[in-house]
């Protein structure tokens, strides 16, 4: 798969989730079961730099979501 296809898969998968807007890095690993986690985190970080995804952090843990999706602070209704 090329990088563009990978990114599309990520975006489509996240858009397909109706109940959640913030995800752990592990959730991205699951989208690419045959890849090493470090490759996946590189891809995710690249997508943040491109403005497609954004980090959301408690200070202790980091989650990742589509840019602008869901609440910008406090995850009252997320199931973390």
């Amino acid at each position: 798969m090329g990088a563009e296809e990978d990114k599309k898969l990520i975006i489509d998968t996240l858009k397909g989730k109706t109940t959640k807007t913030k995800f752990y890095l592990k959730d991205f690993n699951k989208m690419f079961p045959e890849r090493r986690p470090r490759e996946v985190s590189k891809l995710v970080n690249e997508m943040v730099a491109e403005g497609l995804l954004e980090y959301w952090s408690t200070g202790s843990t980091t989650m990742i979501g589509l840019k602008g999706a869901g609440i910008q602070h406090e995850a009252e209704d997320s199931d973390q």
Binding site: N45, V48, A49, Y55, W56, S57, T58, H73, E74, A75
Partner: peptide, 20 residues
């Protein structure tokens, strides 16, 4: 205080702890 947020520096995923 609420807990967490998207506050940060462009390209960095750490170093800033959002508090609202």
């Amino acid at each position: 205080w609420k807990h967490g947020g998207v506050a940060g520096v462009f390209g960095y995923g750490g170093g800033v702890i959002g508090r609202y």
